[in-house]
Simulated assay, not measured.
Amino acid sequence: MKWTLAAALLPAQHLVDVARTAEESGYHSVALPDSVFYPEKVSAKYPYTKDGSRFWPPETEFVDPFVAIPAMAAVTSRLEFHTNVCKLPLRDPLLTAKQVASIAVLSDNRFAFGVGLSWIPEEFTFTRTDMRTRGARVDEAIEILKLVCAGNGPEWVEYHGTHYDFDRLMISPAPSAPVKILVGGHSEPALKRTARVADGWISVNTTPGAIIEACARLHELRAEYGRADEPFEIIAGPVGNVSRDDYRRLEEAGVTECQAAPWWQYGVDFRDKAALIESARRFAGEVIETY
């Protein structure tokens, strides 16, 4: 089992030191979320709370992962990074591919790209993108990202789809190893997309039981798509009082990496950098080193 330090909601000033601590303490990776803005009024319910309300205040810091990850990669040498998850349909795929390729090169291929759809109608309205076609556009965007970031360095690519269309072009720099595409979400369309085109899956923060059920469905779908024997990663975000037995069950279900946010587990105020760092080290000592 590998371990991710999930750096959601953390103050910008803490992120570089968090990366150093994660590498020193034996974490495999750091995950960064994506939030472009906080609409004052939202016409849809947040899907991951019982009452549909957002649990973070509007001033919560969400540093752009395309900015934060290069800064964190610059002070580390082994640590890997991924987005958890980037709201891909809000963005132009070629501009995104340019950013992803640049991060992969600057980090020496230590970057994986986790993608999702976004649940907020206002994000699509305010960025002048179409929520109705978000799934189909994500499918095409993933194909474009895989072309640009195939791992062959800069090369000529072209794409002719329903939503995106361009003739031969080259993006440079481009990575020397393929950038892994990870898909997030528990819905059936998300699981099918993962099984069909992705190099891995990222769960939402939920119970070990719900993650295990999703893993079983993923195994079925990957077999249906003829991909059961291909390399595949499952990054899980178990919540609650997660025991060592729970981690074992997740691993048996196919989970390759577990996320941890120790400051929540230990009741630490993550705005206190010293306490934040100590909680990350404590989890490493109590769980990672003894697992």
Rank of each mutant, 00 (worst) to 15 (best):
G161V: 04
R248L: 13
A274M: 04
P33N: 09
F270G: 14
D245M: 12
G151T: 07
I171N: 06
E213K: 10
R244A: 15
L15C: 08
S279K: 09
L9C: 11
A280M: 14
S35V: 15
A210H: 09
S176Q: 14
R244G: 11
A19W: 10
S53K: 15
K87G: 07
S35K: 13
P189Q: 10
M131D: 02
H28Y: 13
K50V: 11
E251G: 12
D92L: 00
G153H: 05
E61F: 06
N84E: 05
E233H: 10
V268A: 11
M131F: 10
P231W: 03
V105S: 02
P89W: 06
P231S: 01
F81I: 07
L221H: 07
V157A: 10
D64F: 02
L147Y: 05
T83L: 06
R78I: 01
I144E: 01
F55G: 08
T194Q: 02
T4R: 05
E188A: 14
L147P: 01
C149I: 06
S29A: 15
I288F: 04
F81Y: 10
V138T: 15
V36F: 12
I171W: 06
D229K: 14
R222A: 08
A73L: 07
D167S: 14
D269C: 11
D246T: 12
P175R: 02
N152S: 11
E230D: 13
A6K: 04
I235F: 11
V115D: 06
L9I: 05
A141G: 12
D165H: 13
A261K: 07
G267P: 04
P231K: 07
L79K: 01
A284Y: 04
A68D: 12
R20C: 07
W156F: 07
F37P: 10
E252I: 01
K273L: 13
S203F: 08
G26R: 03
I181C: 08
A44V: 06
F126L: 13
T21Y: 01
V75C: 08
E220Q: 15
S35D: 12
E61P: 09
A44T: 13
R282Y: 02
A174I: 02
A71R: 12
S118K: 06
F62Y: 15
E224R: 12
F111Y: 07
T60F: 10
R128W: 03
E251V: 08
H219M: 04
I235T: 10
N109T: 00
P57Y: 01
F113I: 03
P89V: 05
K180I: 05
D199P: 01
K192T: 07
D165G: 01
Q99L: 08
A71G: 02
H163Q: 06
D17Q: 15
V148T: 03
V138C: 14
E188Y: 08
P47G: 11
F37Y: 13
T127P: 05
R217K: 15
D165P: 02
A228I: 04
A97K: 02
A214Y: 10
R110F: 03
A12G: 14
M170R: 13
R168A: 13
E251T: 14
F283M: 03
F124G: 05
T207G: 12
T206C: 09
A6E: 12
L106V: 09
Q265L: 15
A7D: 02
D199L: 02
E122T: 11
W3I: 00
N109D: 13
T4C: 12
A141S: 15
T76K: 03
P154S: 02
D269P: 14
A198G: 07
E233V: 04
D17T: 11
F283Q: 04
